[in-house]
Design a binder for these strands. Sequence first.
DNA 1: AAAAAAT
Length: 614
Amino acid sequence: MNSAAPAVNWNSRNTSFPRADAWGGSRSEMGYSTPQRSGWSDRASSQGDRWNSGYRGGRYSNYGGRGGGLDEFSRRGEDGYGSWREGLHKIAPKNLHIERDLFGLPDDPDRQHTGINFEKYDDIPVEASGNDVPEGVSDFTSPPLDSHLLCNIELARYTTPTPVQKYSIPIVANGRDLMACAQTGSGKTGGFLFPILSELFKHGPSPPPPEQPGYTRGMSRSRKAYPVGLILAPTRELASQIYEEARKFAYRSWVRPCVVYGGADISAQIRQIDRGCDLLTATPGRLVDLIERGRVSLSQTRYLVLDEADRMLDMGFEPQIRRIVEQEDMPGVNDRQTLMFSATFPRDIQILARDFLKDYVFLSVGRVGSTSENITQKIEYVEEEDKRSVLLDILHSQPDSDRGLTLIFVETKRSADTLSVYLIQSNFPATSIHGDRSQRERERALDSFRTGRTPIMVATAVAARGLDIPNVTHVINYDLPTDIDDYVHRIGRTGRAGNIGLSTAFFNRSNKGVVRDLIELLKEANQEIPSWLETVAKETQSYGSRGSSRGGGRGSRGGNRDHRRFGGSSSERGGYGSSNEFGYYGGGYSSGNGGGYGGGNYGNANGNYKQSWW
DNA sequence: AAAAAAT
């Protein structure tokens, strides 16, 4: 076939649906009648062999390192990585050591939750809108998923796609972009890893970039990594968590996952990416650093994922993200597939979606196991000076038998330290995590908490979102956050995986700023509302209303609703009433490329909408 | 006001 530049071929896949296949190769098994367009895979098969054998043949790829022994495996080609040769996916042999490391033992209680499945999927509201939204899938099957990916999904003991996965699988398989409003716990990591890895398994690596002949030249020259997939995440812990999942699902495949983030030795990370870096998970700052050092190029990136996009903007990452996406060598919006995940969909995220995505499918998905059902929320009136003793009372009254984890949120790093010291002095097995601790300390704290060695952890906002820690049975808001969204995220650390969770919040006068939102939330979740709390709310007439406190700017619960206008189809599933119009768009953005914002005149920002799944 | 993130 004609050898157009990869970008052109890549581009072509977005021109029609079912898509024309940029990779070539038979796709009849997917039911898409596809004219055989090639480019990528032809080149991959002719040049990819050298690429693969030189670059990732496995001789010096001992990466994956947990302890020794892997060198030995890698010499034998048993390091858990396969390869792509002559247009075919060569799956590596099974390696029980790696398998156990990645997936745990079948009866390991620590791992039970990772692949837990829920029968209540049907209750979860899902709204999908956009042009030609692909039909959701109801099972993990091949097609549309790659059969080797199915093996890994099975090893991870996932049996049924979560709602976000149901849609993301066909959306990505059809070459579409995705904007998903979904929480951690909705299975969103799988939601982007499954379809992306599946496509990568089916189609192999990108052709080696022309400006980099160094891949055949041995190791003397500093190499550049050309990840095909890039995942950006706001915090180091989240990045590392995504990476661990990526390792599972990339097991035995040609795809080598990598992770880079700050606070860790950069030369070790460079060595890691030198061993092969196909699917890179990164925090923005460290990635920019590596790009500046010429160690990473995004010229071959065809899948871009922004996880927790709202949080990344909250944390001021927008300039770095825009630099990475728009000002480096990443293919443009039409030449890549972009998936954005965000808990909320406020104005600045809408703008980001407009700039980074093309004709995207908008998905709004509730959490698996909604807060209202699974989490009992208690609000206690506790004065500042009584907090410690009340906390001790609570901890003493918790039966040791339940072996659950207790996560305590405080507002400042300093109080995280002092409180954890106090707890330890009071003979409670506690640890703490916050941003002033070294990365090593953070990781150790998290690990010791996860494994139950210290079943109590005091945390700042660093642990509020994104982290998936199974078995947290109690979340204590020692200090309530000022933003109700943070509260929601915090209590969302419990009640996961279909389990029952308990949340206790200490409330006093200093928290009256959130009292209205809090009551609203409790009502929505069918929780008991203490009468004193209602009293406080009445006394706090003038402020506390959502709209005013946010000044119409970045309202963080911006409503998970697609603000675009469609002439065409839109499908709705589940419990979103279509009656409550709300949003932040008064004016409207002239649509840049397809499906922009038609200046819908939505109401003001004080909308009383609710997400039914909080 | 605090937290997070590149050094």
